[in-house]
C-alpha cells in the first residue's frame, strides 16, 4: 500500500516533469529569447565595465565577474516564469484536467517545479558554456558541478515562489504587474552587476534580504573561487528559502480554486 502510493507520487511528479520537457523542446524561440538577454549583458556590459571600473581590493571587474550573476538571473527568470505558467494552464483549461485526476496536488506542483527547474538549469548551463567559450575561466570541474547543484536549489525556490503567486493571482494582468515589480528589483539588488562588499547601509540591507544574492554569491564561489558571503552561509540560506517556498507554493496550489 505504501509502496503503491510512493509509486503513484513518483509517477505524478514524472508526468508533470515530462510535460514541461516536451513543451520546452518545442519552444525553440523561447530558449533563444531566454539566452539572448543574459548574452547581451555578458558581452556588452562585460566589455564596457571592464574598461572603466576596477574593483576595490583588487580583481578586475569584468566578464568573469558578471557570468555567475547572469546565470543566476537566467535561473530566476526561467523558474519564476515556469511557476506562474500555472496561470496559463488555468486560462487555457489544462489545469482542470490535472486537478480532476486522482493524484495529490502537492506532487503535481512538485513535478511542475522540477520540470521548470530543469529548463532553468539547461539555460544556466548553456550560459555557463557560452561564457567559458568567450574566455571566462572557471576554477575547477567540481566547481562547475557544484554550480549546477546551486542552480537547482535556487531554481526550486523561485519556482515555489512562482507557483505561490500563480495560486493567489487570478488574472494575468495582475501577474504582469507582479513580475515587473519582482524580477527587476530581485536582479538589481542581487549583486549580479556590482560587488556587494562596500555598499551603503540601506542598500546592503536590501541586498542581504534578497534570496537571489545568496544564489549569485554561491555561484560566484563555485565558478570563480571567491565570494563576499561565505559559501556555506549562502547554501544554508538557499536551502531554507527553497524548502519554505516549495512548501508554501504546494500548500497554496493545494487550496487554489479553478
Amino acid at each position: 500500500m505504501v509502496s503503491a502510493s510512493v509509486n503513484r507520487a513518483a509517477q505524478t511528479v514524472y508526468t508533470m516533469w515530462l510535460r514541461e520537457m516536451i513543451r520546452f523542446s518545442r519552444s525553440k524561440s523561447r530558449i533563444i529569447g531566454a539566452l539572448a538577454t543574459p548574452l547581451f549583458f555578458l558581452i556588452i556590459l562585460g566589455a564596457g565595465f571592464s574598461s572603466s571600473f576596477q574593483v576595490r581590493g583588487g580583481g578586475a571587474f569584468n566578464t568573469s565577474y558578471l557570468a555567475p550573476g547572469l546565470i543566476g538571473m537566467a535561473v530566476l527568470f526561467t523558474s519564476l516564469m515556469g511557476g506562474v505558467s500555472i496561470i496559463w494552464d488555468r486560462e487555457f483549461g489544462f489545469l482542470k484536467e490535472i486537478l480532476i485526476a486522482p493524484v495529490s496536488r502537492f506532487f503535481v506542483a512538485l513535478g511542475k517545479a522540477i520540470g521548470g527547474v530543469t529548463t532553468a538549469m539547461i539555460q544556466g548551463v548553456l550560459i555557463m558554456i557560452i561564457a567559458w567559450l568567450i574566455g571566462v575561466h572557471y576554477v575547477s570541474i567540481w566547481g562547475v558541478l557544484a554550480a549546477i547543484v546551486i542552480m537547482f536549489i535556487s531554481g526550486i525556490g523561485f519556482m515555489g515562489l512562482g507557483i505561490a503567486l500563480a495560486s493567489i493571482i487570478d488574472s494575468h494582468e495582475g501577474f504582469q504587474m507582479v513580475m515587473s515589480f519582482l524580477t527587476m528589483p530581485l536582479v538589481l539588488l542581487s549583486g549580479a552587476f556590482f560587488p556587494i562588499s562596500n555598499l551603503p547601509a540601506w542598500l546592503k540591507a536590501l541586498v542581504y534580504a534578497n534570496p537571489l544574492t545568496y544564489g549569485v554569491e554561491a555561484l560566484r564561489y563555485c565558478l570563480l573561487g571567491s565570494s563576499t558571503i561565505p559559501v556555506l552561509l549562502s547554501v544554508f540560506v538557499l536551502l531554507i528559502f527553497s524548502t519554505a517556498m516549495i512548501v508554501i507554493g504546494g500548500k497554496l496550489f493545494g487550496v487554489m480554486r479553478v
Binding site: 505524478t12 519552444s27 487555457f92 483549461g93 489545469l95 482542470k96 484536467e97 490535472i98 485526476a101 486522482p102
Partner: peptide
C-alpha cells in the same frame, strides 16, 4: 469528465495528451 471548455494542452499532440492522462491515472 469532459468539461464545457477545452482542457487539452494544445502544445502537445493528441497522443501525448492521452499518454499524460494515462500516466496520471496510473
Amino acid at each position: 469528465v469532459v468539461f464545457q471548455d477545452t482542457t487539452l494542452d494544445d502544445r502537445l499532440t493528441g497522443r501525448e495528451n492521452l499518454d499524460l492522462h494515462g500516466r496520471l491515472y496510473g
